[in-house]
Simulated scan of single mutants.
Amino acid sequence: MHRSGYTLHPELIERKAALAEISTRIVPLPDERRAGDTQLVFFVEDDELRDAKHWRERLCQVLPVYEQPNRVEVLESFPLNRNGKPDKRRLEQIAQG
């Protein structure tokens, strides 16, 4: 995916966040304002359900500007697929919702 002239890989950004003890999954969405660009929706798993502002600040401390979220959604737990892994399709539905 492309954003602001950079090629990004959500899995690598998720790993950077994990090093800062932030459990996140990223859903890329087309940026309607900039053709060919991508918006990043970060889903953060937090059983305390702290607000999105808290997590945005934490993420912005550990990620360069071009990898930072456009939007942060906080979930008590990620929806899981049949294999017990985070359900990316369900997260995409929520992101587009």
Rank of each mutant, 00 (worst) to 15 (best):
V62P: 00
L91W: 05
L19I: 07
E11C: 10
V74E: 06
N81F: 07
F78R: 07
E32V: 04
I26H: 01
A95K: 09
L91F: 08
L8K: 08
G84I: 05
M1S: 05
L75W: 05
R71A: 02
V44I: 12
R71Y: 03
V41I: 14
G5R: 07
R82H: 12
G36R: 07
P28Y: 08
G84L: 07
P64L: 12
T24G: 01
L29E: 06
N70H: 15
K85D: 10
L49Q: 14
T38K: 05
D47P: 09
H54A: 06
H2G: 07
T7I: 11
K88Y: 14
I13H: 02
Q93F: 09
A52W: 06
Q93P: 00
S23F: 05
S4N: 13
R71N: 03
W55A: 03
D87H: 08
V74H: 10
L63F: 10
V72H: 05
L59N: 04
V62N: 11
P28D: 10
S4T: 05
L59D: 04
L40N: 01
S77P: 01
Q96C: 01
Q68G: 04
L12W: 09
E32M: 07
A52E: 14
G5C: 07
P10L: 08
T7H: 11
R50V: 03
A20S: 15
R89W: 09
V65C: 08
A52C: 09
R3E: 03
L12S: 14
Q61H: 14
G5E: 04
S77M: 12
E11P: 00
P69M: 07
R56Y: 12
A17M: 07
Q39G: 00
G36T: 08
R34W: 09
I26C: 03
D46T: 04
V62R: 15
Y66N: 09
D37P: 00
D47F: 06
L91D: 01
Q61S: 12
R50G: 03
Q61T: 10
Q39R: 14
A20C: 13
D31K: 10
V62E: 14
E57V: 07
V72W: 03
R71K: 15
I22T: 11
Q61Y: 07
E92M: 06
L49W: 02
S77R: 15
E11F: 07
R25F: 00
E76N: 12
P64D: 12
L49C: 13
H9L: 13
Y6A: 08
Q39C: 06
R71I: 01
G36S: 07
E57P: 00
R15C: 06
E67D: 08
R58S: 10
I22Q: 10
F43Y: 02
V62F: 13
S77T: 15
T38A: 10
G5I: 04
A17P: 00
L19Y: 13
V44Y: 01
R71L: 06
V27S: 02
R50H: 13
I26G: 00
L80P: 01
L91E: 03
D51P: 00
Y66H: 15
D87K: 02
V74L: 13
R58M: 11
P79F: 09
L75A: 08
R3W: 04
R25D: 00
E76I: 02
L63K: 13
E14F: 03
E32W: 02
E76R: 15
P79W: 12
G36Y: 02
R71C: 01
G84A: 10
